[in-house]
Amino acid sequence: MSFSTWLYENYNIRPETKRWVDGKECYQAERYIYFITSVENNEIIHMEQSVLAYYLKESSYSNMAIPIRNQQGEWLTSHQNTKYMVIQGSDHPYSPSISSGTILAQFHQVGSAYTYEPKTISSYGQWKQLWIEKVTALEESLEKAAQENPNAYYRLIMDTLPYLIGVSENAIQYIRESEEELRFHETDQGTIAFRRYSDQLYQSVMWPLELVYDHPARDIAEFLRQQFLQDDPKHGTIQFLQDYQTVRPLSIFTWRLVYARLLFPIHLFDCLERNLTEQQIDAYDQLHHLLQLQAKYEKHVSQFFDWANIDCKHLQIPVLHWL
């Protein structure tokens, strides 16, 4: 049985055509598009993300895709021993004429008004522990994989691992000290955020399975991370931070969280984790390219507070001088 027939039998949806949106296969039916995604052992995560997606959809985010129930009123539908969720998106262009900083600050403003902190998808206040676990787990799995696969890719990883662990430990120590920072205000409360923010707010379809609950510093840092991997991010960084703060001023605590997250090499960990699970053909090239960008990235992180017009000495914000 095809998924077209399955959609009609279980959701009373008659697909007119199959297409791809943002790299994901979907089915067009009248003015909506429908994505079918498998759900494996993480039903609670999907349910929490679904609640956030509905909240955002009702809060005027028309590009937010939402899971829908089947004809039996259930969120998940089985097909060939696998459970699936159907996600509905609107099929129209979405191009808000608003700056990156402003649109993210407004999103965090709406997200912070959501009054129930999810349990499973919340990382609020947990970065230190999550980073320690990430470093430990990845070190073990990479060393094991390197022993089983003595090739150029894993030799590159083993050469890089001491640096990765060292940089990560610096970030973990910085976040540990930052947790004692008392200069915070109401914008430091938790908000709806993205697992890795990369301008999803401008996309025609926002994907609910990317939603998390966390400190707004998460999205700010991930936006800046992508900027800092480019050649000349100074002007864009200054503009982004100015625009964001016009809507939501940042506390000293937030500045420190953003800096800590920029120190932690999440982009390298993401690359390594992706290649461990998916075993991509160009794994070596991906990692080698990111490592070549690392010196430039670190230079930009070292200039972060200057670009933000923050006097670290006056405000007693510690910085890492090896950068």
Rank of each mutant, 00 (worst) to 15 (best):
K234L: 11
A171G: 04
L241G: 07
L161A: 02
V135E: 02
I165E: 04
Q239C: 08
Y34M: 05
P208H: 08
I68N: 05
V258H: 02
E222M: 14
T77H: 06
R176W: 00
A152Y: 07
Q80W: 01
M206G: 08
L291W: 09
E40W: 11
I87Y: 07
L268H: 01
I121M: 09
H300G: 07
E180G: 00
Q71Y: 00
G190I: 03
N149P: 02
Q242T: 14
P67F: 07
Y61Q: 11
K144Y: 13
I36H: 04
H92K: 15
I157R: 03
T160D: 01
M47D: 12
E298V: 02
S59I: 00
I266S: 14
W127D: 05
Q286C: 11
P150V: 08
I192D: 06
S2K: 15
Q316A: 12
F228P: 05
I103S: 01
S99G: 06
Q280Y: 03
Y213P: 06
F240V: 09
D243M: 04
L224I: 15
Y163M: 12
I192G: 06
R31T: 14
Y11P: 05
Q294N: 15
A308M: 04
T5F: 11
N42G: 10
Q316S: 12
A29W: 03
P93K: 11
L209D: 13
F264M: 09
S38V: 12
V51K: 15
I132H: 00
I103M: 01
S99Q: 06
A29E: 04
G190R: 05
A113P: 00
A295L: 05
Q203R: 15
L272W: 03
R256M: 15
H321C: 00
Q80L: 13
H92Q: 14
E140P: 00
D306G: 00
S251G: 08
P96D: 10
D188Q: 05
A152F: 09
A171V: 06
D282I: 10
K134R: 15
Q203T: 13
F253R: 13
D282W: 09
I98N: 00
S100H: 15
K128D: 06
I44S: 11
A217I: 12
A283P: 03
V319N: 03
T17S: 14
D285R: 13
L56F: 09
R195F: 15
Q242I: 11
L142F: 09
F305I: 04
W20G: 00
S141H: 08
I33A: 02
P318T: 08
P265N: 07
H235N: 10
L164I: 11
K296D: 11
A308L: 04
E74M: 06
R218M: 12
A145P: 01
Y84D: 01
E43K: 14
E273M: 02
Y61N: 10
Q106G: 03
E177F: 05
A308R: 02
S38G: 08
F223E: 12
Q245D: 06
P96F: 11
S204E: 13
W127R: 03
R155Q: 14
A308E: 02
I121W: 08
S178E: 11
